[in-house]
Design a protein around this nucleic acid. Structure first.
Length: 455
RNA sequence: UCCUCUGUAGCUCAGCGGUAGAGCGGGUGGCUGUUAACCACUAGGUCGUUGGUUCGAAUCCAACCGGAGGAGCCA
């Protein structure tokens, strides 16, 4: 008999008479004549309640000594439940123990801190919360591909090892080879020059956007910054669409449409897990996702945002002044206090943005945009790219970049240049937004942060 | 890199200068169509590490190690 996922059983109107389920025991309650086993196989949040009569062959060995965490294989009939709390339950005809869980199995039925669960990252997917997080993670990855593929975007696999620093994107990890304990550098360098783990696939993405028109990347990204915050990781996943024949307006539109699409997809396809988050993690989650799905986002230029912050009467720790970066507290005020909804800030001063962003006609600002969401801050950062050869060269010089290092990037402006734009969406930040989980370490299977690369 | 908090049983925590505690989890027994089941008994600890103060340190002090939060940087 082949295994039937518990999700399939619990969502059925009519079920096959006799099925096989396999999974891990969440809890067990014994009485004299039978035991209730709560079995979870990760296919959904809910457990299947199994009734195992004491007269079953092997009851003593296979059932009586079961503890939380043990793995079992159970054959039986699905019947309407006589108890409250579930529609179906299983009347077991055969219970086979696959593996006991030793008595110090760390996952209990209640009261674990996120910090503790992080320390047992190999077992935490078996908890309700993390099972739900990683089911939603899978679904969101699927929905992202669907969103782009439905709109004619091609998925491009940009390199993970790179020799070009996407300027300003952050500190990089160096890639080296070893001879014993000796790191090979200089002339012995494997790639003939210093190479790094990618901090962004954007520059390579642009080369494909100027060929296939609409592309996106979706893959791991690495930043060697020594950040200790709940929203930074050294290894994370990023989605970077790049669109030819597109300006900032279209770029902002796509980012907003995408966020709405993903909120809608999660509400539609992850309702059981979202309801769980809504109960135990963030009471306003579903309401917020519905808001994001149904209502328009706010847009405000950097210049207007600075004015708004100055006139808000709010006391900020850091100064608000044209030409300075908006601080976390300023972004939070805009999206959480003033607008109370996702907010796109656009047209930043050129001095605080990277070389590749397109200069606006005012000569002072560039066509950049950041999409801010309540509770998390920046979730998308993007821009229209500078497609004019002379202006790009000026920008590179102004940023002290060696044009020779970026000759292939400059070439895109020499051979059939086109207006184009794109953005980066942090996948984990999206998941924080969709699940209500407040620490990035808890939405990625095995988090890498400074000083921590266990598992 | 800077600032702040924190480390006691498998887990969550109490104790805050005078013989190491509870709940949950584990074991044993009982009871019940139960559902964070319930009741009784029981095992389980170099109080993060090292040093210091003290008649006496889980408790006070210092350093170190681990964890967390915030700032910056960004996604």
């Amino acid at each position: 008999m082949t295994r039937t996922p518990i999700a399939q059983i619990l969502s059925s109107e009519e079920v096959p008479d006799s099925v096989l389920v396999q999974g891990w025991v969440r809890t067990k309650r014994d009485s004299k004549a039978f035991s209730f086993i709560e079995l979870n196989d990760g296919s959904c949040l809910s457990n299947l309640q199994i009734v195992a009569d004491a007269v079953l062959p092997g009851y003593e060995d296979a059932v009586l000594h079961l503890t939380t965490g043990a793995s079992v294989s159970v054959e039986g009939k699905i019947v309407p439940s006589r108890g409250k709390g579930q529609k179906w339950e299983m009347q077991a005809t055969e219970v086979t123990l696959l593996g006991l869980a030793e008595e110090d199995f760390p996952l209990q039925k209640k009261g674990h801190s996120m910090e503790f669960l992080r320390s047992i990252a190999h077992l935490r997917p078996r908890s309700n919360l993390f099972g739900a997080v990683f089911r939603v993670r899978s679904r969101m990855a699927y929905a992202i591909h669907q969103f782009f593929q439905d709109r004619g975007f091609f998925w491009v696999h940009t390199p993970i090892i790179t020799a070009s620093d996407c300027e300003g994107a952050g500190e990089m990890f160096r890639v080296v080879t070893m001879d014993g304990d000796e790191i090979k550098l200089g002339d012995d360098e494997f790639f003939g020059k210093p190479s790094y783990l990618t901090v962004s696939g954007q520059l390579e993405g642009e080369t494909f956007a100027t060929a296939l028109s609409n592309i996106y990347t979706f893959g791991p990204t690495f930043r060697a910054e020594n950040s200790h915050t709940s929203r930074h990781a050294s290894e994370f996943w990023m989605i970077e669409p790049e669109i030819a024949f597109c300006d900032l307006e279209g770029d902002m539109g796509l980012a907003e449409e995408m966020l709405k699409y993903l909120a809608s997809d999660a509400l539609e396809n992850c309702s059981e897990d979202l309801n769980f988050f809504n109960r135990f993690v963030d009471k306003g989650l579903i309401e917020r996702l519905e808001f994001v799905r149904d209502r328009d986002f706010q847009r405000i230029s950097y210049t207007d945002a600075v004015e708004l912050l100055k006139e808000s009467g709010e006391k900020f720790e850091y100064p608000v002044e044209y030409g300075l970066n908006l601080q976390s507290e300023h972004e939070r005020y805009l999206t959480e206090t003033h607008f109370e909804c996702p907010t796109t800030v656009f047209n930043y001063p050129k001095e605080i943005k990277p070389f590749y962003m397109r200069k606006n006609d005012d000569g002072k600002t560039v066509a950049a945009m950041d999409l801010l969401v309540p509770g998390i801050g920046e979730i998308v950062g993007g821009s229209q790219r500078e497609e004019r050869l002379d202006l790009l060269r000026e920008n590179m010089a102004a940023h002290d970049l060696d044009e020779a290092e970026y000759s292939w990037y400059v070439d895109l402006r020499r051979y059939g240049t086109v207006p184009h734009a794109g953005f980066g969406l942090g996948f984990e930040r999206l998941l924080m937004f969709v699940t209500g989980v407040t620490n990035i370490r808890d939405v990625i299977p095995f988090p890498r942060t400074p000083g921590s690369a266990e598992f």
